[in-house]
Amino acid sequence: MRILLIEDDPQLSEALASFLRAKGFVVDTAGTLAQARATLPAAHWGAVLLDLHLPDGDGLSLLPLLQRQHPDSSVIVLTARDQITDRIRGLDAGADDYLVKPFDPEELLARLRAVERRRGGASGQGATLTLGALSVDLARDRVRVNGQAVELTAKEWALLRVMASRPERIHSRESLLDALYGFDDDTDSNTLEVFISNLRRKIGRERIQTLRGLGYRLAGDAGA
């Protein structure tokens, strides 16, 4: 996967690029927003690692251009801003993930591999989510509960894939409905609840938690 690293600190930029290259990624770097704007059209980026504290402006200001030019790229914000409102602002602006410096290199690696999984660039064991007795193989579209395979319809699978690909997130009703629109243009307001109910019946009622006013999330055995 090709990565664009936008970081103004040359030492960190070099160290991070070396680390990622050693892990098999192709990495290009940019030290300013201007350099990043110039570099963006040069390749198809699988992921963009974006510092916010750049010498010529806020890194978030790059997101609209990035989303226009590379709608499939994942953006991981790497920043020293650790306030929860900074994180919410970053995610609301369109970033896919948010890591606070000094981050654990292994954690960054895990996030990048998750990006690869979501992009369908990886398969096998790394693409399997295990939550208690629930096992979701995103690469092979297989679901098991207590080792027993569960058959899902395409729509149920679409919902489960959205939740399983980002199990750490609370998924709003709107984002889950978006996942269904591609399958059924006649989706009405109760459709989501019907599919959630069907999914719960098949994988276990307690494995999809409803968070009133916020949305739904996958929960393990302890999350009921």
């Binding site: 600190d9 030492q11 960190l12 160290a15 991070l16 070396s18 680390f19 000094p102 654990d104 290199p105």
Partner: peptide, 14 residues
């Protein structure tokens, strides 16, 4: 504070 810490960690990891 955090940027050099991140750099050092990466170097040590390498």
């Amino acid at each position: 504070l955090r940027t050099p810490l991140a750099t050092t960690r990466l170097r040590l990891q390498g």
